[in-house]
């Protein structure tokens, strides 16, 4: 087995990790630990739970043999897993959530995640997404973020922003289409 370099590809690192190589895990954590923790904290809004969820994600994702890193981007997969498991934790917190009902409908794909920014590094990807989001109108950005991070339904978003339901729907759809176009323009 050759020594793992810190610039090894995700595919090589996951392969090594599946053979029990903890240095591979260390490199993957350096690469994606911040992203997973940031998302976990945003969703759960508690540092202790975010820390626990990050640990959970890193100790378990590589065992999912259905995940094929040659066909799906690891950063996307980690975010999906983080969000999916955050749902479980929010559910266990109980009470409120109509919002959770919506999240429960999210299916976490096991393979073949679609391909936007596949060739970008993690830092490049973050920079591109941030820049693209800043180009959306404030309403478009707000409704998408309320949908993703707060798990609010369209009607809940309409109430929160004091906007007609139809306007919220339009902002969300147009915002998503614009984001998709902006991201795709970065690779085309």
């Amino acid at each position: 087995m050759r020594q793992i370099r810190s610039d090894a590809t995700d595919v090589d690192l996951i392969s090594s990790l599946r053979q029990g190589n903890q240095h591979a895990l260390s490199i993957l954590y350096d690469r994606y630990g911040g992203l997973v923790y940031t998302l976990a904290l945003k969703l759960l809004d508690r540092r202790d739970e975010a820390e626990d969820l990050t640990q959970d994600v890193f100790l378990s994702f590589w065992k999912q043999e259905k995940f094929d890193p040659t066909r799906a981007k690891l950063s996307s997969y980690l975010c999906l897993i983080t969000r999916s498991r955050a749902i479980d934790r929010l559910r266990s917190r109980q009470s409120e959530q109509k919002s959770i009902e919506r999240l429960q409908q999210i299916v976490v794909p096991e393979t073949d995640l679609p391909t936007l920014l596949d060739s970008a590094t993690q830092a490049e990807e973050q920079s591109i997404v941030r820049q693209s989001l800043s180009t959306l109108s404030e309403h478009q950005r707000d409704v998408l973020e309320l949908s993703y991070y707060r798990n609010l339904s369209q009607s809940a978003i309409a109430t929160q922003l004091n906007l007609p339901l139809g306007t919220v729907k339009t902002h969300m759809r147009q915002g998503l289409i614009k984001l998709r176009q902006l991201l795709q323009s970065q690779i085309g």
């Binding site: 999906l80 391909t115 973050q126 998408l144 993703y148 984001l179």
Partner: peptide, 9 residues
């Protein structure tokens, strides 16, 4: 895929 990229921002 675009929707799933939101956390990157």
């Amino acid at each position: 895929s675009a929707y799933d990229k939101l956390p990157q921002g």
